[in-house]
């Protein structure tokens, strides 16, 4: 499954989402590749400069000219290929979206994030129509992922409540779980380790809660993948 993580708005949590999900799936035994298409190369930095023994494979030096070649080389070797995209409205982003099975759109509860996220959603819908002209069975699913949300039990901002209501009323698909603002996720980047490798480190904050959060998101992601597989099987039988 090719998963593009996209929001033209910078700082919405794309790289955190990618790193957290990719490393957790690898921890669960999946074969995972991350194409680091962010010019700042945060995931490659994490992999090369850290001491993590995570099995995720990271490819960087990606641009709009070589993106499809790189993806085509990697795609059949991994169960999950994440594409961590830059926070700009570029052709690299749109090409990655056109090649994805699922687009995760991380969104913070702010008006700017939501507006930019809407751009990403419109592109997904248009690219899906274009791709279907070549392969009618193809679909590009998308899911909003709310990021930097308060911990469960903590007060939820009015902006977040409004965003949740707007998404519900517009029927925009979203992850039911959010990516909570967690010290553990920051520690993953700062210390260049996976959640599992942070055990015993006080700088990681509430690790148990972070595991639960990622576990719930990984389950949703895998269910989306299973649903896609079932739909493809049904289409091929019909």
């Amino acid at each position: 499954m090719v998963i593009a993580v996209s929001n033209p708005k910078g700082g919405s949590g794309k790289s955190t989402t990618t790193l957290v999900l990719a490393t957790h799936l690898a921890h669960l035994g999946a074969t995972v590749c991350v194409i680091d298409a962010d010019p700042n190369r945060p995931i490659q930095d994490w992999k090369l400069k850290g001491k993590s023994v995570s099995t995720i494979s990271v490819i960087a030096d990606v641009n709009e000219s070589n993106f499809f070649d790189i993806l085509d080389e990697q795609i059949s070797h991994f169960q999950f290929v994440f594409v961590d995209l830059e926070g700009t409205a570029s052709f690299l982003v749109s090409r990655a979206i056109s090649a994805a099975n699922l687009v995760i759109v991380p969104v913070q509860a702010s008006a700017i994030d939501v507006r930019q996220a809407s751009k990403a959603i419109k592109i997904v819908q248009d690219e899906e129509k274009a791709v279907r002209r070549f392969d009618a069975s193809r679909s590009i699913k998308f899911r909003i992922l709310m990021t930097r949300t308060p911990a469960p039990g903590a007060p939820v901002s009015l902006s977040q409540k409004e965003l949740e209501r707007d998404l519900r009323e517009a029927g925009i698909p979203r992850f039911q779980n959010t990516l909570v603002e967690r010290q553990a996720f920051k520690a993953m980047f700062n210390l260049r380790l996976t959640l599992q490798e942070l055990v015993g480190d006080r700088r990681a904050g509430n690790l148990s809660a972070a595991y639960e959060n990622v576990e719930a998101l990984a389950l949703e992601l895998v269910n989306i993948s299973s649903e896609e597989l079932r739909q493809n099987e049904q289409l091929s039988r019909s």
């Binding site: 074969t31 085509d72 795609i75 059949s76 991994f78 999950f80 409205a89 090409r95 274009a130 392969d135």
Partner: peptide, 27 residues
């Protein structure tokens, strides 16, 4: 979860043209 399938071919120019309509550009 099976290994990812090769993607169907889509002419990049088609993708770029659609994206340009939404304000995306080559960077």
């Amino acid at each position: 979860v099976p290994v990812s399938k090769p993607r169907p071919y889509l002419n990049p120019q088609v993708s770029d043209k659609l994206a340009a309509q939404h304000g995306f550009a080559s960077r």
